[in-house]
Amino acid sequence: MGNVLVWVIWVAAALSCIGSGIAVISFTNPFYSALALIGNLASLAVLFLLASAEFVAAAQILVYAGAVMVMFLFVIAYLGGRADAPWAGGPRWLQIGAFVVGAAIMIEVIVALATKAGGGLSNGTEITRSFGSPAEIGRLFLTDHLLAFEITSIVLLIAAVGGVVLGMKTQAEGEAS
């Protein structure tokens, strides 16, 4: 792959990523927002891939775009796509505040980057072929990041319990309604 091609793909993915991000927060219908998020996740996966993170990219597609978003779409379908105007409602200062906070974080980081760029960020360290491969990630998950691996599973387990508990109709609820 030529360098130019990489750049082209990268820019395309980055633009689609930002564009779909904006789409997520501006669609009225949550259904479209969720679809836009899938686009966002997919273009992110491309970026991951270009950053030599093959395994992360695969996980992104399989776990995120595949499983999580399907769950989202299910719930949205269950609720029946309620509409909600994106910029409507809410006090005006909140809207301004949202932009200010969002912009502040962006500017903060970008300024930080700009001042740093001369330093060393642009030139990455040479990376080996096995970098980001499933094998290496798997090895680290069983050695250095063993705890992280275990805890991730605990978190998922707790969330599963939560999903079941909250999704269930309870006795008390039956009496209350």
Binding site: I18, G21, V75, D84, G97, G102, M106, I110
Partner: peptide
């Protein structure tokens, strides 16, 4: 592209997400 570009895109995305959390009223969004 160098790392700087990645981080710039990440910062923009993070800003978009922040705006969405603060601004939108539907819990789904």
């Amino acid at each position: 592209p160098g790392t700087t570009w990645y981080i710039a895109v990440a910062a923009v995305l993070f800003g978009i997400g922040t705006t969405g959390v603060i601004l939108r009223r539907s819990p789904l969004i």
